[in-house]
Each structure stands twice: as structure tokens, then as C-alpha cells.
């Protein structure tokens, strides 16, 4: 009798969770299936399965907008995101090590400044940064999107903070043993701390990739030539050029744009969930 009641409750819980999950995921599934429908069919039924399957949307969409194909947009996005990943690892490991392990003058003030920069909305410094990059002749290149990550600006303060926390969790005896063995500070960093920080560096890489891949604001501000456009700005250009006549192709390219994110999630789920739950980083 009792177990039966429990079974019913369990079944109820599953039913609720399945319904909620379907409601949450349905829009994405609908876009996925719609990308295989002719545009006229997209607005005819809320159902998923296409009556007439077609790959035409992908063929048309891939040709892109403004005379530039989506292949170029993807390449540009991968280039920028890849460089930002390298920059994030570079700055987070160097700065994180210094804050976690070294003693120096003004350390408390520096650390407070670093924490404050996490909270600083990027819009507050956007205008002067744009002017600086404009004066350097960097506008309409990838440099304003990449260089700040090497200097601990824009998205990277969060990564520095994560790295400080991670290195503080490593046993200090390891450093001391290395110093007794005659290692310099840099060797301690390079040979002891860095290899042990691999999990944190993977988490940082994933977030750096995601945030850059999904970024739209900075890319919109700094890139003006369609051949330099990323997936985000390319989609935006496509939307404003093609308008409502090409929903099928728009859907197809939108689906392609989120595939890298989903693939990385499936492979690195563990690191990601850990990153979110331990630091509160928002995707």
C-alpha cells in the first residue's frame, strides 16, 4: 500500500518534470525542425515534423549577407574566440598566481580594484575605450575585441578571481618544496602551479569561448566591414537584409550558430556546471 503510494507520487513528479522540460525546450526544437521546412510552411502549423523536408534553407543561408558567406562569419568568430581564450588563460594565470601566492606592496588595494572591476559594467568605460582604439586605428579590426582580454579587462576579471580562488586551494607545501629545490618564483609558477591548475584553466577557456561567441554588443560597436563580421553580427546583418521573407534560412543559420555551444557543453558539462555553481558565473 505504502510503496504503491510512493510509486504514484514518483510518477507524478516525472510527469510534471517531463511537461516542464518539453515546454522549455520546445521553442528550440521547433526552430530546429522549422529550419528544414520551406518558409511558407513555418507559419502554417505549430507542429514539429516538416511535411516537405528541405535543405534549401541551409544552402541559401550559408551564402550569408552583404556578399559575405557564413563560412567567413564562423571563421571570424572562431578566430576571435580562440584568441580571447588564449588571452584569458594568459592573464588569469599570471595575475591569479601573483594575488594568490606573492606578497607585495599595495596588494590589498590592488585586490580590491580587481574585485571592483568584476562588477564594473562594460558600458561605463566603452566610450573612452572606443576613442582609444579609434586613435590607434584599431576600429574595424579584431584587436579591440582581443587585446583587452590579454590585459585583464572586459570579461577577464572574473577569470582572475576564479584563478585566485583555485590557486589558494592548492597546498602551499608544494611551492615551498620547489623553492628549497632551488626554483625561482617563475619556475614555481610554470612548473608547479600551472600544471596543477588545469581544471580551472579548462573552465576559464570554456567560459571565455562562450562569452565571446555569444557576444554581440562589442562586436557590433567595433566591426563595420561585413568581411570582418562574426556569427552574431552576421546574423544581425542577415536579419536586417533578408527581413521576414527568409525565416527558413535565418533559422538554419541560427541553429548552426548555437551548435558549437551545445557541442562544448556536451563534452565539458562537468567543468561548466562546476564553474557556474562555485563562482556564480553567468552564461
Amino acid at each position: 500500500m505504502r510503496t504503491k503510494k510512493r510509486h504514484v507520487r514518483l510518477l507524478g513528479t516525472h510527469a510534471v518534470l517531463i511537461i516542464l522540460s518539453v515546454i522549455m525546450i520546445y521553442p528550440v526544437l521547433w526552430m530546429l525542425f522549422s529550419s528544414f521546412k520551406p518558409t511558407s510552411e513555418i507559419f502554417s502549423s505549430p507542429g514539429l515534423i516538416p511535411e516537405n523536408w528541405t535543405l534549401q534553407n541551409y544552402v541559401v543561408g550559408w551564402q550569408g549577407a552583404g556578399g559575405v558567406g557564413f563560412g567567413t562569419f564562423f571563421l571570424n568568430s572562431f578566430l576571435i574566440a580562440g584568441a580571447v581564450v588564449v588571452g584569458s588563460i594568459f592573464i588569469a594565470s599570471l595575475t591569479g598566481f601573483a594575488f594568490a601566492r606573492l606578497k607585495f606592496k599595495l596588494r590589498k588595494i590592488m585586490f580590491a580594484l580587481m574585485l571592483m572591476s568584476i562588477m564594473l559594467p562594460i558600458q561605463v568605460t566603452l566610450i573612452p575605450q572606443y576613442i582609444i582604439f579609434h586613435e590607434l586605428g584599431w576600429v574595424n579590426t579584431f584587436l579591440p575585441l582581443i587585446v583587452p582580454s590579454f590585459l585583464g579587462v572586459s570579461i577577464t576579471p572574473f577569470f582572475i578571481f576564479l584563478m585566485v580562488q583555485f590557486i589558494r586551494g592548492l597546498p602551499k607545501e608544494l611551492d615551498e618544496a620547489a623553492i628549497i629545490d632551488g626554483c625561482s618564483t617563475f619556475q614555481v609558477f610554470w612548473r608547479v602551479i600551472l600544471p596543477l591548475s588545469k581544471p580551472a584553466l579548462i573552465t576559464i577557456s570554456i567560459f571565455a569561448f562562450y562569452w565571446t561567441w555569444d557576444d554581440f554588443f562589442s562586436q557590433l560597436v567595433y566591426l563595420s566591414d561585413p568581411s570582418k563580421f562574426t556569427v552574431s553580427t552576421g546574423l544581425n546583418l542577415f536579419l536586417s537584409n533578408a527581413g521576414n521573407s527568409q525565416w527558413g534560412a535565418l533559422f538554419a543559420m541560427s541553429i548552426l550558430s548555437i551548435i558549437p555551444v551545445i557541442v562544448i557543453f556536451l563534452f565539458f558539462q562537468k567543468y561548466l556546471v562546476k564553474g557556474v555553481s562555485t563562482t556564480g558565473m553567468k552564461l
Binding site: 522549455m24 525546450i25 561567441w213 555569444d214 552574431s232 546574423l235 548555437i258 555551444v261 557543453f265
Partner: peptide
């Protein structure tokens, strides 16, 4: 998954 992809232009 929605929060993973939600801020994108797509």
C-alpha cells in the same frame, strides 16, 4: 540548455 544559448543573437 536555454540559459546556455539564451543570450545569443540566434
Amino acid at each position: 540548455i536555454p540559459s546556455l544559448i539564451g543570450t545569443s543573437v540566434g
